[in-house]
């Protein structure tokens, strides 16, 4: 998750405590003057403007992003595909040569 958050929100020395945020229904994110506001969106197209790194990290963890390609992990899909293809190929070849 750290990699994804850093990709979206940038690097920070803060170590977020997401559990604490989730368990505090009245948790208020303090705006950070030094943080450049970031707009994130979710898969439904809702947009949110975030004013601190912690707030951004929290939303990024929840699936919000600033890039459409983050909704689909193409590399993961490709990796699995590349693993499966030779197995399937071998299986078919074996069946064909047996028959």
């Amino acid at each position: 998750m750290k990699k994804r958050i850093e990709k979206i929100c940038g690097e920070s020395e803060n170590i977020p405590n997401f559990e604490e945020i989730e368990n505090s229904p009245n948790f208020v994110f303090t705006p950070d003057k030094n943080f450049e506001t970031i707009a994130l969106f979710d898969q439904e197209g809702n947009v949110v403007n975030l004013n601190s790194w912690l707030e951004c990290a929290y939303y990024a963890k929840g699936g919000w992003t600033n890039n459409v390609s983050d909704f689909f992990d193409g590399e993961k899909f490709l990796f699995l595909f590349l693993l499966i293809v030779p197995v399937v190929y071998k299986f078919i070849i074996t069946r064909v040569s047996k028959s």
């Binding site: 750290k2 990699k3 990709k7 170590i15 977020p16 590399e75 993961k76 990796f79 590349l82």
Partner: peptide, 30 residues
């Protein structure tokens, strides 16, 4: 490459080792 990360794993906020760099894994597999 937005997902570019050259190392096979990284440490998360809680210092646990995460193996989810599919950018690299699929690159190596290819």
């Amino acid at each position: 490459g937005r997902d570019y990360f050259p190392w096979p794993f990284y440490r998360d906020f809680d210092n646990s080792i995460i193996f989810d760099n599919y950018y690299l894994y699929s690159f190596i597999l290819i």
